[in-house]
Design a protein around this nucleic acid. Structure first.
Lengths: 131, 131
DNA sequence: CTTTACGTTTACGTTAACGTCAATTAAAAT
DNA sequence: ATTTTAATTGACGTTAACGTAAACGTAAAG
């Protein structure tokens, strides 16, 4: 059995992930994290670290905290009844389509950057050769 | 020579792109668009449509208007002196790295979605078969 | 000539995602 | 016992990206 019961204080987790404590409290208020309490102190576990990674990935993708929350709902969805499953599949497909678009957008942006860079490198090489 | 001198009013452009006039004025104030004026009225040209497409792509990538503005600077950068060119290449590479990360993030998110979907479809098929 | 339809500027309102105190409290170190 | 050190809960401030409404101009249509 895996028994990794590592715990973290708020400032430990904050500095590890390069965020502020304020942000972690906000994420908790937004129901993205749910640390245990030791008295009044927050105790974060591995689960919270995993979620925090996902939060940061979501942010890099431009998602709002609400959208990240929705994605957690997808992860957490209990595979229950048939209707629920079909609903889940619809939601997943909607996300997938958005991600596919975003993938194309990234490719296009990358192509643009590389095109401009090529251009610049050519000009640069001309300058240096002709000097 | 290509002589497409199509022009558009603010509401035409707004409805075509599914944004409000307010947004277009904000984009202008943010120096992302620069329509001509016919008296006091804004007259948008093809160039503005192209920019608007880029703005929307940038937004889908989660960029702020300021970041979109910076990307326009990259597009517009006049390939001048050697120092300028090297600076441009650095900027381009920085953007490229961010985009590569984002590309990976998209792939990871897609993989997650598909994993959950597979799971759901299997469960669903079991329910339907066992019924 | 006067509605009607669009457009303009000015300006205040709103939401999200934190930043930044301030006042407390509890545990740890001296 | 007292000083640090780390946390906690308010609560107000801030920036971005618009929304929304007010007050006004102008040109075409009836």
């Amino acid at each position: 059995m895996s028994e990794k019961s590592n715990t973290y204080t708020i400032s430990e987790l904050a500095s590890e992930f390069g965020v502020t404590s304020r942000a972690l409290r906000l994420y908790e208020e937004s129901e993205l994290l749910s640390p245990k309490r030791e008295g009044t102190r927050r105790i974060y576990a591995e689960r919270d670290r995993v979620r925090l990674r996902l939060i940061q990935r979501g942010k890099r993708l431009g998602w709002s905290l609400a959208e990240i929350h929705e994605s957690f709902d997808l992860y957490d969805s209990s595979l229950g009844e048939e209707a629920q499953l079909n609903y889940l599949l619809e939601k997943l497909d909607a996300r997938r389509r958005i991600l596919e678009t975003q993938k194309q957008d990234v490719e296009l942006a990358l192509a643009d950057m590389e095109h401009i860079a090529d251009n610049a490198r050519t000009t640069l090489s001309n300058i240096q050769t002709g000097k």
